[in-house]
Simulated assay, not measured.
Amino acid sequence: MSTTRSHTAIAITGKGIVESIQLPTVDPIPGEVQVNVAYSTIVAPDVYMVDGSLLTKPEDYPIPLGLSVSGTVVAVGDGVPRLKVGDRVCAFTLTQRKSKGLQLKVILHHTLCAKIPDNMSLEDAVTIPDNFVTAFYTIFDQLGLPFPLQFPATTAPQDAEVPILIYGAGSTAGQYAIQILRLAGYVNVIAIASSRHHEYLRSLGAKHTIDYRVPDMADRTIRAAGGKVQLAMDCITAEGTMKRVAQVVRPKAKVALLLPIKEGDSLVPESGKMWMAVPSDKNPFGEDIKVMGVRTFLYQDNEYMKEKLMPEILPQLLKENLIKPSQIRMFNQGTFLERTLAALELVRSGKVSGEKVVVQVA
């Protein structure tokens, strides 16, 4: 007689409804591992899905929440290199129900997992995967900067001095973008962020830091760059932020927008309106500007990044202490569901800046 196994997950079960549910526990197939989850993260897209800003179909429910995870490998499918039972890992989860973070057990393809060193806590490790992957993919795939033969780079790239604008640099995505650019040998990063983040961003590798609220932000940016910039990454991607970026980019520039595009000027718009492409009536960029909407969930379409980024590159950087984890806003009080709801409300409030919202799972 077979017994169906199950485990607890926190999931969206309808628009605006988040509940604790039971999901079937499955074994890993070839290429996959099963991880007992210790921590996961709540990010803005979780709020978008709960509130219905990102459209979902009724048949998609239940949708477990949580993006990155950290925990311990408890089962390994056939053909998995590098990982074994007992390894501590952090991982970037994709859209499959079985891989989402806010559940006690997840199934992950091994290429989404990075083994973490013994001296790193699971709390710190969970802050890394989604923004590290986003920044790496944006810089080397979307913006098209040449990938160094070795990473970190051992020689300076040909265009090491090229000005690179990171708007919303105080966000966790912006912080990892600055670190990755430094490790790749780029030394002229212009970080646009609240002044309270400036000292920290300079310690990560930013050469110039400018407050987005100053009235002459565009002029300061252009002076720092020695002219308008060729490469820009918008880590917030709202109507207001795109307008500011558009003021400082030169003709034929490349601009990477972290999707979705939000109405207004903040990461979580009050209206809930957002788009996956720039509406023609809201596009501040000239026709000669190459605008790219970054969809991080597609990063494994890049075969090199699929095979190398999480399995090899990130573990080596962590082992050598070359990546700084984000600061943490921890939710570890109350029930699993209560912790998640409180974390969602904080992200929804827009009062998170430069921190990763982490939920203790087990």
Rank of each mutant, 00 (worst) to 15 (best):
S2M: 07
S2R: 11
R5Q: 14
S6N: 11
H7F: 15
A9F: 10
T13Y: 13
G14L: 04
G14F: 02
G14Q: 11
G16S: 08
G16L: 09
G16V: 01
I17A: 12
I21V: 13
Q22T: 07
L23E: 10
T25Q: 14
T25I: 04
V26F: 12
D27A: 14
P28M: 09
P28F: 08
P28I: 05
P30H: 13
G31Q: 01
V33F: 10
V33T: 05
V33Y: 05
V35Q: 04
V35D: 02
N36H: 12
A38H: 09
Y39K: 03
Y39R: 04
S40L: 02
S40H: 03
T41C: 15
I42D: 03
I42Y: 05
I42H: 04
A44M: 08
P45Y: 13
P45R: 10
V47Y: 07
V47P: 01
V47S: 02
Y48K: 05
Y48R: 02
M49P: 00
V50Q: 06
V50S: 03
D51V: 00
S53L: 00
L54R: 12
L54A: 11
L54F: 14
L55I: 10
T56E: 05
T56V: 11
T56G: 04
T56C: 11
T56S: 15
T56H: 10
K57N: 13
P58V: 12
D60I: 02
P62I: 06
P62A: 10
I63K: 09
P64Y: 11
P64N: 10
L65S: 03
G66D: 08
V69H: 00
T72D: 10
V73G: 04
V73D: 06
V73L: 08
V73P: 06
V73I: 15
R82Q: 12
K84I: 08
D87W: 06
V89M: 06
C90Y: 00
A91M: 03
T93D: 05
T93A: 11
L94A: 07
T95L: 15
T95V: 13
Q96Y: 12
Q96S: 14
R97M: 11
R97L: 11
S99G: 14
S99V: 02
S99T: 14
K100D: 05
Q103R: 09
Q103N: 08
Q103C: 07
Q103L: 09
L104C: 06
K105P: 00
V106P: 01
I107E: 01
H110K: 08
A114G: 11
A114L: 08
I116K: 01
I116E: 01
P117C: 05
D118I: 09
M120F: 13
M120N: 01
S121I: 01
D124P: 01
D124G: 03
D124I: 04
T127H: 03
T127M: 03
I128Y: 00
F132C: 01
T134G: 04
